[in-house]
Write a protein that binds this DNA or RNA. Structure first.
Lengths: 201, 201
DNA sequence: GATCGCCTTGGACGTTCGACCAAATACTAT
DNA sequence: ATAGTATTTGGTCGAACGTCCAAGGCGATC
């Protein structure tokens, strides 16, 4: 019942999204055009505005879907872990899959930046990041971490910053940040006494 | 001796660089055009290619100068510190000056990304980052840190990642990552025994 | 006051951009 | 076959883009 035609449409739409996912990382968010997008997807440029309201809407959709895919994958990794330290090792192994210069890594950072200038994208990203933070916080809570919320924020910032630096210095390896990560996520409280005021936030 | 004319030239050039510094953060690296640049600087667009070889060359120059200014400022901060923990507190205070959405923060990340696609910019950024890493490593060595090199890499990644996240969640404060930072940069070795293989890299 | 050199102007060039649309095509249901 | 619906095409539109350049301005030097 009208499926072959619709299926072709779905297929073209999917190819456009795949092309966007690749090109955002390769060229940068603002350098992706309707024409390069169509060429990569193997369709004519007019199709872009048939399947999507605008070029920005296409990029938003593709970027959010890919970020969700990556974060969900890492969440699943954590859920599958047999112990806290096992979860850390899995995340470190996962982190080394991104070399900081591949389309996936760059798409992540590009989306962060684009979100600061696109209200709708910002809301979508905030929601995804908040979800992941919850997963991570929950995992840390389960393992009895004294400050799961703070530790989750730190781990996420460290991971993203690490990917950023890796794009510049390919020599970096996840093993470089491993010692610290194991310390942060450990359940033992080995706090250093503060030298100044404390408690604000 | 022919200075008024030359001074005017220097002034126009400086205003172009200032405009570039602002606009890279406001609009994004790829969205800065010769015409918006000239308008912000209060000159005509033809001047861009008199003072610079190309638009990219202008952006490169402006970005590298600003990144150097920021990193040198932080290096000076460290050098002025009276003790290791004092240095950390100074860096934390400095970090809270950037809210993650201001032109300075965004220029930093934009330059990271642009460097992955521009060979000359990449070399310049690598040099600046390496210099700063040296300053930080030296400071950590002076304070007797057992692993100054690894700690420096971690602190830098954490700082940059923190700025990235702050652009999305304005609620974050430098105090959120302070406990960890104090731990990492402390001279005490409170290592957690590794659960898996160790020693590589 | 003529000459020189640097700085600046204003406009032109070819290209590419996002968006839009009428016509053509492909498939389904009657 | 026919009508109806969804997808695709190919092209146009005005605007903005980077780059370039001949001409003009303007203070310093002779």
């Amino acid at each position: 019942m009208g499926e072959t035609s619709i299926e072709r449409g779905r297929n073209a739409r999917a190819r456009l999204l795949t092309a966007a996912r690749e090109l955002i990382g390769e060229l940068g968010w603002n350098a992706v055009s309707t024409r390069t997008l169509a060429e990569r997807a193997g369709v004519r440029s007019g199709l872009v505005h048939y399947h999507f309201d605008s070029l920005q809407a296409l990029l938003r959709h593709a970027a959010l879907a890919e970020v969700q895919r990556m974060l969900d994958g890492t969440s699943a990794l954590l859920a599958r872990a047999t112990s806290p330290s096992d979860g850390i090792e899995r995340m470190l192994f996962d982190l080394d899959q991104y070399n900081g210069a591949d389309p996936a890594s760059l798409l992540f950072v590009e989306t962060y930046l684009a979100a600061t200038r696109d209200h709708e994208l910002r809301q979508g990203m905030s929601a995804l990041v908040a979800d992941f933070r919850s997963s991570l916080t929950e995992a840390l809570t389960r393992s009895g971490h004294p400050e799961p919320q703070a530790a989750a924020s730190i781990v996420m910032a460290l991971f993203d910053g690490f990917v950023l630096h890796k794009g510049l210095d390919q020599g970096l390896s996840a093993e470089d940040i491993a010692p610290l990560l194991r310390r942060v996520t450990s359940t033992e409280e080995s706090r250093i006494p503060n030298t100044e005021e404390d408690g604000e936030q």
